[in-house]
Amino acid sequence: MGNHGTIQKDHSMTLNVQAWRQAGPQQKGKFETYKIDNIIPEMSFLEMLDVLNQKLIKEGLDPISFDHDCREGICGTCLMVINGDAHGPERGITTCQLHMRTFKDGDTIVIEPARAKSFPIIKDLSIDRSAFDRIVSKGGYVSINTGNPQDANALPIAKENAELAMDAAACIGCGACVAACKNASAMLFVGAKVSHFALLPQGQPERTERVLNMVEQMDAEGFGNCTNTGACEAACPKEITLENIARMNREFMKASLVKRKC
């Protein structure tokens, strides 16, 4: 392919995409293989899927359902499992930030939805992550009403704590941690949320209640337990660390001990 000139003129690739097709939550799914060409390295992974879908539509076939929105790695919508990796092989990025330069001409790419009971498949690669919202609704907040709180600078916060809280708050709720975990555990997500507030003075009044209630909901949603394998940390596009899970464990045990009612 192409000549050896200085400007790579023809650097396009032909790929085999093996995608999970599933018509609905109850239906059985299976892999379907498609061949596409003219994929260039500058394309993002989702743009490659766009190209494939355009082709499928033109051929009268059903395009592959996949969810996405911001396409810049911040909304957390685009989770899929690419060649066994949540968000693909590169660390610290989402699927939409993955570029085709990561792949080689002739590669076969296997794309699947996250597989976790708590994330039912809606169609093809689209999944339902509302379990995360329900967990947040059980305590992922500071209970203040809109009104006239004290002046923002009345509450100095050590820069380091503010930064650590920000590290935790950077979670985009994509669910890659659940997808990557062999136990489908949501501990990294919940740990990040618990940490965000545990590290800030604003979070102190509800510290005990929050962690107990959020963990209770997490368990009720049917997520698995953490066995400290660390796959979540490696898959997390925002590089949320296991420190957050440890902090949640500690917060939880402390809260279980001090709470007054059983």
Binding site: Y141, V142, I144, T146, G147, N148, P149, Q150, D151, A152, N153, L155, P156, I157, A158, K159, A162, E163, A165, M166, A169, H196, F197, L200, Q202, G203
Partner: peptide
């Protein structure tokens, strides 16, 4: 004020202020 009270982790200086 509202956002800070909610726990929004705005950037801060070394003195701990916004």
């Amino acid at each position: 004020d509202q956002c800070v009270a909610q726990g929004v982790p705005f950037a801060r200086d070394y003195g701990g202020l916004l």
